[in-house]
Lab assay of single mutants.
Amino acid sequence: DWEDIVRFLRKLFELGEEVVIGDWHNHHREEIKRLIEWLEKHF
């Protein structure tokens, strides 16, 4: 279910905002944000 995936990604992203998950999070933050925005537009 796409909504569950979007919710999971958003939760992960919000957690990442508070607890910076090292370089991985910083590197992928923009991609995650773009992916969430893309999914919201399409689903």
Score class of each variant (00 low, 15 high):
8 F>I: 13
8 F>S: 06
43 F>V: 05
4 D>Q: 07
33 K>W: 11
24 W>V: 06
11 K>T: 10
1 D>P: 14
10 R>M: 12
43 F>R: 03
29 R>H: 11
33 K>R: 14
16 G>S: 11
17 E>M: 15
42 H>G: 05
11 K>R: 11
38 W>V: 02
15 L>V: 04
38 W>P: 00
34 R>H: 10
13 F>T: 02
35 L>G: 01
7 R>G: 06
12 L>K: 00
42 H>M: 14
21 I>D: 08
3 E>A: 08
23 D>K: 05
27 H>M: 11
22 G>M: 04
9 L>F: 04
17 E>S: 10
34 R>V: 10
1 D>E: 11
37 E>H: 06
13 F>R: 02
35 L>K: 00
8 F>N: 06
7 R>I: 06
31 E>P: 03
19 V>M: 09
10 R>S: 10
15 L>C: 06
29 R>D: 04
25 H>Y: 14
3 E>Q: 12
25 H>W: 15
39 L>E: 00
28 H>V: 15
30 E>H: 08
36 I>Q: 02
18 E>N: 14
18 E>L: 14
17 E>F: 15
38 W>L: 06
1 D>Y: 14
35 L>C: 05
25 H>N: 12
23 D>G: 09
8 F>M: 11
30 E>T: 08
13 F>H: 01
28 H>R: 10
31 E>W: 15
14 E>S: 05
21 I>P: 10
24 W>F: 09
10 R>D: 14
27 H>E: 05
3 E>V: 11
30 E>Y: 02
22 G>Q: 04
43 F>N: 02
26 N>D: 15
38 W>R: 05
6 V>G: 02
43 F>I: 08
22 G>L: 03
16 G>I: 15
43 F>P: 02
11 K>I: 11
19 V>W: 08
38 W>A: 05
4 D>M: 08
24 W>G: 05
15 L>I: 07
19 V>A: 09
13 F>D: 00
2 W>G: 01
33 K>L: 10
21 I>S: 10
12 L>R: 00
15 L>M: 06
17 E>R: 14
7 R>Q: 08
4 D>F: 14
18 E>M: 14
32 I>E: 00
5 I>K: 02
30 E>A: 12
20 V>K: 12
